[in-house]
Amino acid sequence: MEKFPRKVFATLFFAIFVSVTGVGIVVPLLPVYAHELGASGFSIALIFGGFSLSRTFFLPWFGRLSDAHGRKPFLVMGLFSYFVISVAFVLAHQIHSLIAIRLIQGVASAMIMPVAQAYVGDITPEGKEGITMGGFNMSIFAGLSIGPLMGGVIQDVFGLNMAFACMGGLAFFGFFLAAVLLPPAAAERIYSVGRAPVKWGLLVRDPMLVALFSFRMVYTTCIGIIWGFLPVYANDAFALSSSAVGVLVMLGVSVSGLIHIPMGMLADRCDKRFMVLAGGTAVIVAMLLMGTAGGFVGLFAANVVFGIGGGLSMPAVMALAVIRGQKIEAMGSVMSMITVAHSLGMLMGSIFAGLIMDWFELRFAFFLGVLIMAAGMAQFFAGTRHSGAATMPGREKTL
């Protein structure tokens, strides 16, 4: 077995960490900022969900292109685009401008996250899928943990423009790391080069991939509800400060991130399917707690439980995705499909919550998340009941 390329892994880890931290600084501030500009619940949903909408359309394209032409060019372009976008945020003072910027940011994101995950999948040793992807995903969760807390403090002390400036500086540093330290595309370990791409029709008929897609989508639907509207809910219902909201948003991702590595190790040694279902159950409990919370303490507890749910389930989900991508030699396409599920979930969560905010009471959005999560768990259970369910005709044997 080839030696694990630690330098490549470390470069990807820190490049994603700093860029995600920058995005995390801004995420909890945008809904409140838009609300202050007079945005309705649906407009906030468009600002938050526009990112996921545009990313969904471009993810399959960039994933397949990275299978054929290498990961580095897309990572470098995407990270530099994040830097440019941060400048645009400073200049935007209207709702339609925020929507447009978020749409463009979604295109840039399609060049970053699934491509970075596919890169890590390419270099992952057999039997170490859980720990490797769990370790890499720490970069995402750590960035999304630190970012919201930083954003709340920066907003309270220095103002929103400084938060956008910090996002830009971190994005540029991530671009620098990827551009200078990653090997040229020709030196990457991409096993699908020279092969005909796996057809999307085969991917979307694979029961295992459909099950992973469904679970990832419903999980991120709940994230979309929380990230898009927890700041507004906490501000309107309990008059919490930006710093307090930053703490709440940080909790879910930080708790999940802290247990990602041990749960990744566990996923390499035990039933990954059981871990996914256990994590989904914890997410349902968390959404119920959010809908019935009476203040900061209740929301605090709910976000901790939500983080545990993600920490239990996501390493197992990503380990199964890596195994599948390696077997069919289409890591970029598989990771794009999983990230499409992420984007659709974020989009649906923000739109559903926005409509509920306009038509009913925002608290009910969390109860809707319970129903959606339960439906996704049922589909995952059905799609993974048989170990031979993940057959890809003409490509490989069953798992």
Rank of each mutant, 00 (worst) to 15 (best):
W200Q: 02
Y82F: 14
S241F: 10
G147Q: 03
F74Y: 15
V253Q: 09
S66F: 12
M377S: 13
A92I: 11
V26C: 09
M314T: 09
G121T: 14
T384C: 05
F17A: 13
S242Y: 13
G127R: 04
H342I: 12
V297M: 08
M265H: 11
M275F: 06
G224V: 10
L240M: 12
G168H: 09
V253D: 02
N235D: 08
T132M: 12
R189W: 00
I146S: 00
Q326K: 15
I190D: 03
F58D: 00
W227V: 13
A244T: 07
I328A: 06
A116K: 11
S192N: 04
F58L: 09
G298C: 08
W61P: 00
A100G: 11
S139L: 10
W61L: 15
I223G: 01
M357C: 05
F158R: 10
G307P: 02
F296Y: 14
F83T: 14
I16A: 13
S214M: 15
I259S: 03
Y119G: 00
V84A: 14
G246V: 12
S86K: 03
L320E: 14
A110M: 04
G252N: 06
V340C: 02
L203P: 00
I328C: 08
L98M: 14
F360T: 07
T132N: 04
G194Q: 06
S214W: 09
T21P: 02
A118W: 12
G298R: 12
Q326R: 14
L248G: 01
L320Q: 13
G152Y: 12
A330Y: 06
N137C: 00
G246W: 14
A39L: 05
V253N: 07
H96E: 14
D122G: 09
V8A: 12
I259R: 03
G228D: 06
F42G: 00
I95G: 11
E126M: 07
F366H: 08
F80I: 09
M1N: 05
K128E: 14
L12R: 12
R395L: 15
